[in-house]
Computed example of a mutant assay.
Amino acid sequence: MKMRKIGKSDLEVSEICLGTMTWGSQDSLENAHSQIAHAKAQGINFMDTAEMYPVNPVRAETVGDTEEIIGKYFAKAKDRADWVLATKIAGPSGFISQEGITPATVEARLDLSLKRLQTDYVDLYQFHWPNRGSYHFRQHWTFDPSAQPSKEEVLDNMRAVNEKMAELQKAGKVREFGTSNESAWGMMQWQRVAEETGGPRMQSIQNEYSLLCRHYDTDLAEFAVHEEVTLLAYSVLSCGMLSGKYNGGKTIDPNSRMAVGPDLGGRVTPQVWPAVDAYLAIAKKHGLDPVTMAIAWSMTRPFDVVPIIGGRSVEQLQHSIDGADLTLSEEVLADIDAAHRAHGKPF
């Protein structure tokens, strides 16, 4: 497993990140701990979680359970120093806090995360979604930025939060910061505020990115290249659709994500299955595992990407890990490009 850095930081991470969002809902503590141990054995040292996890579904009574599972692993394995650990504070949420991200909530909720994780620092602390709202999670179809707070209000909040970020960094509670479900405009403001205040910059952005979801490819890609920000790509398999396991929506395992949420967070549309079939056909044509192909493809992009992987078992996880060692041929990449042009926005 190759190692690389996040953004302009000194965080030395594996080129694949271990995701955790179903630990505590669809995955048991024992299964989660087996996945952590297996990922480490394969050279992965980067793990991502969030205070609101687990998902599928998100429930107020389970908020923080995934962090607790990870904390119990650290207490048992005594290997916290071997990991680059990322977690997130949620924006305005009925499950956690309507206040969203403020100087007070950033520190208070970080402290709660640290307690659950049984550690005294987080390597990468991320803002799960911005206070002003987001076009992610299928909200792009009706996105209305005119309903956001004024620019002055947004920037005043960013300045105050950035000053608190600097305090947390100086106190040793956080090494670096990042965002999630952000826009190009939002990222530029965070970087501008960091330059104004002398506080820490955002080193990463965690947005959805896959063969089926490529919003990032234009404005955000340009921003990331010039500002040296790393994309932490989530849902790289589009909730398992790109594995082919759903058979066009006709085969649904009772333990799968689709059994819990039939529309997979708005990803299931009439046009998505032909798109999935096109990518599965490419994998079959070239003798590739479709999961491994999807992960390997994400690592070919002309901007900095670390895919976040997940699985229901160690065996499933390995298919994604194998993507780090797969080099896609020019023929495969050309076929993928043709499929993208034919199925550009399936959800």
Rank of each mutant, 00 (worst) to 15 (best):
M1G: 04
I6N: 01
G7V: 00
S9C: 04
D10T: 12
D10I: 04
L11Y: 03
S14F: 06
T20C: 12
T20A: 11
M21L: 13
W23D: 08
S25V: 06
S28R: 04
L29I: 05
A32T: 13
A37Y: 03
H38R: 13
A39I: 10
Q42N: 15
G43E: 07
V55I: 15
N56I: 02
P57N: 08
V58H: 12
V58T: 07
A60F: 00
A60E: 12
G64K: 02
E67C: 06
I70D: 07
G71I: 08
A77L: 01
R80M: 11
A81E: 15
W83S: 07
A86V: 00
K88R: 05
A90H: 08
S97H: 11
S97I: 01
Q98K: 15
E99H: 04
A104T: 11
A104H: 12
T105V: 09
D111L: 11
D111P: 07
D111T: 14
L117R: 03
Y121S: 13
Y125D: 04
G133V: 02
S134N: 10
Y135R: 15
F137K: 12
R138F: 05
R138V: 13
P145T: 06
P145K: 08
P149H: 10
K151G: 04
E152S: 12
V154C: 09
D156Q: 13
V161D: 01
V161I: 02
N162C: 15
E163N: 13
M165T: 05
Q169G: 05
A171M: 13
G172D: 02
E176N: 15
F177G: 10
M188H: 09
W190L: 10
W190T: 11
V193S: 06
A194G: 14
T197F: 05
R201G: 07
M202T: 12
S204P: 01
E208I: 01
Y209K: 02
L212A: 04
R214K: 02
H215T: 13
Y216I: 12
D217A: 06
L220D: 02
A221K: 14
E228V: 02
L237C: 05
G240F: 14
G240W: 06
G244C: 08
K245C: 11
Y246P: 14
N247S: 10
T251C: 09
T251W: 09
I252D: 05
R257Q: 14
M258L: 10
A259R: 08
G265T: 07
V268N: 14
P270S: 09
P274G: 05
A275R: 12
D277K: 13
A278N: 07
L280K: 10
I282A: 05
A283I: 03
T292P: 13
I295E: 03
W297S: 02
M299K: 15
T300S: 06
T300V: 02
T300A: 03
F303D: 01
V305I: 00
P307Q: 00
I308P: 00
I308R: 01
G310C: 08
S313M: 10
S313G: 12
Q316I: 01
L317G: 06
Q318T: 12
S320V: 04
S320M: 01
D325S: 11
D325Y: 08
V332I: 08
V332E: 05
D335S: 10
D335V: 09
D337C: 00
A338Y: 01
A338P: 05
R341M: 09
A342M: 10
A342R: 14
F347K: 04
